[in-house]
Design a binder for these strands. Sequence first.
DNA 1: AACGTAACCCTAACGGTTAGTGTTTTGCAA
DNA 2: TTGCAAAACACTAACCGTTAGGGTTACGTT
Lengths: 206, 206
Amino acid sequence: MTEPPGRRERKKAATRQKIADTALRLFLERGYDPVGIRDVAAEADVAVTTVFSHFASKEALVFERDQEFEQCLTRAVTDRQPHEPLIPALHREVRALVRHCTAEGSAPVRRMIEGSPALREYEESMSLRHAQALAAALAADPRLSRSATACRATARFAIDAYALACRADDPGATVDEVFRMIEAAWAKLVSGTVSTKPIADMEGFA
Amino acid sequence: MTEPPGRRERKKAATRQKIADTALRLFLERGYDPVGIRDVAAEADVAVTTVFSHFASKEALVFERDQEFEQCLTRAVTDRQPHEPLIPALHREVRALVRHCTAEGSAPVRRMIEGSPALREYEESMSLRHAQALAAALAADPRLSRSATACRATARFAIDAYALACRADDPGATVDEVFRMIEAAWAKLVSGTVSTKPIADMEGFA
DNA sequence: AACGTAACCCTAACGGTTAGTGTTTTGCAA
DNA sequence: TTGCAAAACACTAACCGTTAGGGTTACGTT
């Protein structure tokens, strides 16, 4: 899966990584705003246009693992055990993602993000995409019979839990507390008032 | 409250309004991206720097009523009847705000927002601020005894309800459905299990 | 070996945003 | 009324992220 399929793609990946590493290093050394794209390109020894062929924007240089994050989240739903209820699986994955984000080495990066309005804004818009992807995964799961609205709301709530926990004093406790709320919200709609599909529901029969 | 307190402030407000009106008109006529700040300034007969002295960014020209929105939200919490429960009051206000946003004349504006990534991103970052203001209002209410985490989560959930409903096919039904979930989530924590700080300590939330 | 193309480079520009500086208008008091 | 400080505004020039245009190199394939 992560094997070298060819020199060209390996070189491309190497260039991308070099740019990302260089950018993060410069950002942490001198701050996000003071470092320009032209600085990053020069230090990584590539052209400015090359930077933008690998990353959609300056902010994207900081959130390099964006897609990975989204995949973790959706896979936690689609790849869970056949009869495992949704919320605990989601809870576990979000807890893991929060731990990863609040780990030892991540502190300076978080501080940098919180210190830059542009980065905070970008992170918010990423959250929206993640919530949409998660909502799609929920809506596509045949084991769940909730309305599209319930899926979208739950997806957003889960992302909220992640965002709140990343900034909280006690990330672990925050995730747990918010997911207790999400559990209640999700359970609320289990037996009716769903004006659409009346299909069976495996929830709680694990 | 909205009376003329002086000529200077009236003129300033007039300039601001003229800029906002001109901008919105041009955006709707020719589209958001094709119209530049220099176009807006020229058409409103002011200097570019004047535009930016009234509005923090090009996107802010579209969301002129930002602060009003936030005040409506927080006031729905702080100014509700002495013994009225929180969630119904919040529910009612969000429903009203959604109606306002999905009203007849607002359709072209919404279409414009959805059509521009920059505007969507900006709207998301506004949501973050609104959620923080609402969370602060919840945490400051002596009638509620929930943890800071519960307040922050509930605030985000309410904003989620608004955002989802604005884009939904049936805005009214969406608000009601999501608030049924929020009610359950809020009730869940009513009688204890608050392992951390009781009420105070909202530092860092302007 | 030869070809198509992906990755890369360079230059120049566009558009949002800001700094610096100067001018007019307004509110307030002497 | 007059004088003055501050606010509001104007103008120029620039900064910086981002993209278009047009070329060059190096890889994969045949």
